[in-house]
Design a protein around this nucleic acid. Structure first.
Lengths: 339, 339
DNA sequence: TTGTATGCGTTATCAA
DNA sequence: TTGATAACGCATACAA
């Protein structure tokens, strides 16, 4: 590998001059600039990342903490985060999060990354101290229920979204609506639970602890929770289910299908992300349409600003309602005729 | 951030001694060792990644080239690769691949990563030269059609898998089987196309260019290709469809549903990965069950060996057949009765 | 406008 | 068994 010294020799200038050219410093003669670039081309020179990083104390690496990459919503977010970060000259690492990794994180973060992107996790106090000491900015894409006050974030307007979902269901005549929630407060889904409570209150609908089921974010577990609900003979108690993630909505739907419960005839179902799968089930699932690309883009912009020491503000995104057959008998009728 | 010098001072030894202790060199007295560890604890010292990397020329970073993270099959693979790599002390970057990124790759790889993991891409010759010059090992998880001879790989036994799929369909009475392929030769799906041809030949079934449809790896595009096929009145020409990815199988199924084509009544459908979605559609899709965790695990092991200069051999994994309702009228009957 | 010199935090060589 | 010390490749203050 050619080094800066080789380039300098080849170009007949000093090593410092090469740095000046490379970093676009003002006050370099056009002739030097040309000679240096020529030498760089000829030698196929590329600066050593390690050396530069050692000197500048910047790594141009960001880490994203993922909850469950098997969830297409998170996978899509991650994909867009990577793309946007790369555009800005940053590399993205990711790591699947569970509390146990934080010890590892506290060891491996210093000196390896410049910033941390959360997908709604709530970190341990020790981890926060480390982050603060190291001066590593944190941006959360979607928030958890109990997000730390001073964490920067970009999120969907869940209050508004849940209100839309609930009033749509109310218009369809539903009064008893259950929520398929996650169970962990340390998770972006927790925020949607809060928004659901708020939305039900506003709509003036009855709401209690018995109206919450727990799926843990996975399709399979939501399916099991719903199957147990049916098994327990509770089916009459709610006529509609909102799931805090589309994957869990698919799980609720699967349990209904297996138990011979008609959707939307007996119960209506809705999700709140608009993953691809939500449109591929029978019936297709009513959802909120969350613009993941925009979410990712804003998160990276926010991160870059923090990295540059600029002030930056949090950001809220609206998510429109997509009414599909799982909550709409007319739409269900259309789907049926098409078949 | 405490540096090695601080630790040395605190422990009352020389800086070199700290390195000895840290790197477990033989010939260090027990007392020094204790003093050094104590100082490390007290100062919360962690070695600088950049400095170490500069000196040793190892980065402990690996890059994975992803084709389409929206495909749950790839997302799952990536997830497991990350987990396995981390266990071995490596960090995983990923980057979504299309030919245009290779220029960027040639610039950014040297000095930033130790190894490259492919998801079946075929790289440009210039990129290969760079990789060879830099001595960066490459392991491909699943192969493309025209994989470079000396690339290490870990893959499914697609010939065997396709044979199982085809003979299952043949047993169900199908003779005219079409393939929903990808279209790009520079992609892991291309290998499955070859295996399909081979399997059809072995089974003695007719096979030609008109039996291939092209989806491009996406659900939506496979759906469109299938819809066009139906629109063109070609529906009678095949009684079964194998898709080279489950996502495309879901697309074929969606087009059938929309056109009122009965599955498995009029046509049978099969995929070959076993993503979660393949079991959530109606009917559930017959697939090959590909063990992604095992695939990822072997790939990382292979990579580590190459990184250590050891010899290592490629690896083939069997994928059992999962017969589900999309290709089996009895299973379909069962599903129906359950509803 | 350009060159010299220093140090970033390591590892590794060589003496002691 | 330990301690100086020389790189690794770069950015930058300062001198020229």
């Amino acid at each position: 590998m050619a080094s800066r010294k080789d380039v300098a020799e080849r170009a007949g200038v000093s090593a410092a001059a090469v740095s000046y050219v490379l970093n676009n410093k003002a006050g370099v003669s056009e002739s030097t600039r040309r000679k240096v670039w020529a030498a760089i081309e000829e030698l196929g020179y590329a600066p050593s990342h390690a050396a530069r990083s050692l000197k500048t104390r910047k790594t141009y690496n960001l880490t994203v903490l993922v909850n469950y990459l098997g969830d297409p919503f998170e996978a899509g977010l991650l994909n867009h985060l990577e793309e946007k970060a790369r555009e800005k000259g940053y590399f993205i690492h990711f790591q699947t999060y569970y509390p146990g990794i934080e010890k590892d994180l506290r060891r491996s973060v210093p000196g390896r990354i410049d910033g941390l992107l959360l997908l709604g996790q709530v970190l341990q106090p020790e981890t926060w101290s480390m982050l603060e000491e190291e001066g590593i900015p944190v941006v959360s894409v979607t928030r958890a229920g109990e997000i730390r006050q001073d964490t920067a974030w970009v999120d969907v307007d869940w209050e508004d979204g849940m209100e839309k979902l609930i009033s749509h269901l109310a218009e369809q005549g539903h009064r008893r609506i259950a929520l398929m929630a996650n169970g962990s407060p340390n998770h972006p889904h927790a925020y949607r639970l809060d928004a659901f409570f708020e939305g039900m209150r506003k709509q003036g609908l009855p709401m209690g602890a018995e109206d919450i089921l727990y799926g843990k974010g996975r399709l399979e577990q939501a399916r099991e929770a719903m199957a147990a609900y049916i098994q327990a003979g509770r089916l009459g108690s709610h006529s509609a289910f909102i799931a805090v993630s589309d994957l869990m909505a698919a799980g609720v739907l699967a349990a209904c299908r297996e138990a011979g419960v008609a959707v939307p005839g007996q119960v209506s179902i809705a999700g709140c992300e608009n993953i691809l799968m939500s449109y591929q089930t029978t019936p297709a699932v009513t959802v909120l349409n969350v613009y993941r690309l925009e979410l990712a883009s804003r998160a990276v912009d926010l991160m870059i600003k923090l990295l540059n020491g600029e002030t930056a503000s949090n950001s809220v995104l609206q998510a429109p309602l997509l009414i599909r057959a799982s909550s709409d008998r007319q739409a269900a009728g259309r789907e049926e005729r098409e078949n």
